[in-house]
Design a protein around this nucleic acid. Structure first.
Lengths: 345, 345
DNA sequence: CAGATCAGGTAAAACGGTTTCTCATACACA
DNA sequence: TGTGTATGAGAAACCGTTTTACCTGATCTG
């Protein structure tokens, strides 16, 4: 930690032999001056390693090149990829991200939002772990723009979600394309909007009589569902699961029962949570919600809003893509479905 | 998004009938004035909802109340808990955190560090996914203090790591206390410092003849290790695993082999990665590295350094704690070991 | 050749606070 | 009554940029 005094624009100006005003304009490509002067200043600045003080700049520009990211997903399952995307979209615009983890604590959320506003963020991205729940804080009437990503916002807000229906349809159609006919959907709690959307899309593609089993988002529920399915009626030849944890439970239960995956039964998951989907034996074919792209889009949008550009409010739906591994069974599936939303790995 | 002009200290001063200077001093509890004046100003400020502009304040104070968090752990396994701890330590000090994800990309790292310095961060916390690797950027000679948490730093830096040896010892001693005698350690790649430290501690506690199997950090390796152990020499009655993924592979392999856990074999993991350890059947007894506490400590330290207080450089080791679930077998283990580093869940 | 235009540059005023000095006033003391 | 000293408050400088307004020559126009 070397305490060196930073070079100020004042130093650059003095050494380049111009006024501070000229130096500023030269460096920002504004104002009028000979090209010679401009390059001379720029070269001097570069030689001295001048980097403008962002605080001082923010003070006059009324723009801090900083945005706040609010999340209640402390586990990171959904937030991490979103964050990666946001960062990717913002880093080369020179925008930094304040990360604020609020765990469903309204007071904490308020503290963080206030701190962000004090620090003059140019905008806030709100993100969560559930698409149909709001963060425990009201972000309407803030003096800065807000983008909601993977969490519910007010009706007139800019909101980004992944297309649950399209993802579920892709999964179901994949199973049908493989020749499977007795499809079952084993999914999470019925009160999740995603659950309802995926189930509806499943039924639409697989036939309204296709069974849907609601339960918990856990491996244990996957196990239980299998034992229920195999003890009751006709056994399915394909199971589409509401998330990868359930799918893993299903696959494990089938193996223990001596049912071959994918030979006897095809299984498809949802989320593409690699830690689960890649460790399953066999690795899971699953629906990827493209959360990183969703984050990138959120970054782009908050930037546009921060720059005062108009952005159409409303809910934007981003497509999911099916990631084909081994649990569904085909190696030529990509050939069968020629869609852009499909990805062979 | 309501565009309301923020209240400035100027407004507070005018309405309270004092000068800006007095207002500032009143609000910051500095300078001299009658108590009456001070409270009047404070009340006015509160009534108006005045919140000082952090940028302006940082400009004069030379302190931004902002720190940067640099990480290459994009997966979040280790960074997330650390982050949570940092946040916890900093939020009520009014300090915000810039999150910078750099994925082993030196150029990206440099960009982020420069951006952080431009934004006048008061300090930087570097964190990673591996205790014996450095981030791809040199943070020595920075004009701000740096704390290294769960990543390697220069010898004269302030570094925080968890106590691998103590954690491994706790796990091994737990197995011994349960009456197990044929202990095996199944762990990750030999070139990890953590692996070496844990293996050494294991051997020290279990006897130098106790076998150690090095492999990968994966469930698959856990499977393979079991098949190797059960095909070769005498079978163990306790397996201490280098992480929870290996442990889960081990437990699954044992179940498939008809070996009862914990009746026949006790299994202990490492990391307490809940998504793995809690989903294992039976749930894993495992070593928790206390990463959140490590984060909290990192937050405290960077704060002290930022305030100019002296902090003894060197490596600080934080204790792990054993989290007892069902895979090791005892329900009265807590009674056997009376240590403070033990936690029943 | 006077007056208008324009190119190139600078001084000074923001931005919103903090901090250092200075200055009345009141009070104690000789 | 004159002098020295706390005390409370304000004026002004400052932090490091950007931006506005203005100035000075040079060129153009009629």
């Amino acid at each position: 930690m070397a305490k060196v005094d930073r070079i100020r624009i004042y130093d650059v100006a003095r050494i380049a032999g111009v006024s501070v005003a000229t130096a500023s304009k030269a460096l920002n490509d504004t104002g009028r001056m000979t090209e010679a002067t401009r390059t001379r200043v720029k070269q001097t600045a570069a030689a001295l390693g001048f980097r403008p003080n962002a605080m001082a700049r923010a003070l006059t520009r009324q723009r801090s090149f900083t945005i706040g990211l609010l999340t209640n997903d402390t586990y990171g399952r959904f937030t991490l990829p979103v964050m990666a995307g946001i960062n990717e979209a913002l880093v080369d615009q020179g925008v930094s991200v304040f990360l604020c983890g609020i765990e469903d604590d309204a007071t904490l959320a308020k503290v963080h939002v206030d701190a962000m506003l004090d620090k003059q963020v140019d905008g806030i991205i709100a993100t969560g772990k559930r698409i149909d729940r709001r963060l425990p804080v009201d972000l309407a009437d803030l003096p800065v723009p807000v983008v909601y990503a993977f969490t519910e916002g007010p009706a007139d807000a800019v909101t980004l979600v992944s297309d649950d229906a399209q993802g579920a349809r892709a999964a179901t159609e994949c199973l049908l394309a493989l020749g499977r006919r007795r499809l079952v959907h084993v999914t999470g709690p019925e009160d999740f909007a995603s659950v309802a959307a995926r189930a509806a899309a499943f039924r639409q593609a697989a036939g309204s009589a296709a069974p849907v089993l609601f339960g918990a988002w856990s491996e244990a529920w996957g196990h239980e569902a299998v034992s229920r399915l195999w003890s009751e009626g006709p056994v399915p030849d394909a199971i589409f699961c509401g998330n990868d944890q359930i799918a893993r439970g299903v696959v494990d239960a089938l193996r223990e029962r001596g049912v071959a995956v994918p030979a006897d039964v095809s299984v498809v998951g949802f989320d593409n949570w690699e830690i689960v989907s890649a460790a399953t034996r066999p690795p899971l074919t699953t629906v990827d919600m493209n959360l990183k792209e969703l984050g990138r889009e959120a970054g782009r949008l908050i930037l546009e809003l921060a720059e005062g550009k108009p952005v159409e409010p409303g809910i934007r739906t981003l497509p999911c893509k099916l990631v084909v591994r081994q649990s569904c069974g085909s190696k030529t599936l990509a050939a069968i479905q020629g869609e852009g939303t499909l990805q062979e790995v």
